[in-house]
Amino acid sequence: MSRLDILKTYKLYIGGKFPRTESGRYFALKDKKGKLIANMCLASRKDFRNAVVIARKAQSSWAGVTALNKGQILYRIAEMLEGRKEQFIKELQLQGIGKKKATDEVEASIDRLVYYAGWSDKYQQIFSSVNPVSSAHFNFSAPEPMGLLSVIAPEYQGLLGLVSVIAPALVGGNSIVVLGSNTLPLSAISLAEVLHSSDVPAGVVNILTGDKNELIPHMASHMDVDGIIYCGNDEEEIKLISELASSNVKRTIIYKKNDWLKDMNQSPYFIEKTLEIKTTWHPTKV
Rank of each mutant, 00 (worst) to 15 (best):
E107F: 02
F18M: 13
D226Y: 06
I152K: 03
I73K: 01
E236H: 11
S2C: 04
P132N: 10
Q87A: 09
W62G: 00
Q266E: 11
A63D: 03
I241D: 01
E22F: 08
T279G: 07
T280C: 12
S247N: 07
L170E: 08
R76Q: 07
A220Y: 04
K46M: 08
L29N: 02
V130T: 14
L4P: 02
F138A: 04
G173L: 11
L36C: 02
R3V: 14
S109M: 03
H282C: 08
I271W: 14
K32A: 02
E22N: 12
P217F: 06
I207C: 05
G161Y: 13
L195S: 05
L215N: 05
G210C: 04
P283A: 10
K101P: 00
F18A: 05
K100L: 01
K250I: 04
T280N: 10
I110R: 00
K90M: 01
V204K: 04
D111K: 15
A67G: 00
L42P: 12
S242Q: 14
D104K: 02
A142E: 15
G147E: 01
L261S: 09
C231E: 09
H222K: 00
N248P: 00
K250M: 06
H222L: 01
L275S: 14
K278Y: 10
Y10D: 11
E22T: 15
E82S: 14
Q87R: 10
H137A: 05
L94F: 01
I77H: 00
M40H: 06
A67N: 05
N213F: 02
R25S: 08
R251M: 02
G15Y: 06
A38E: 11
P283D: 03
E214I: 15
L113N: 01
L240T: 15
N139Q: 05
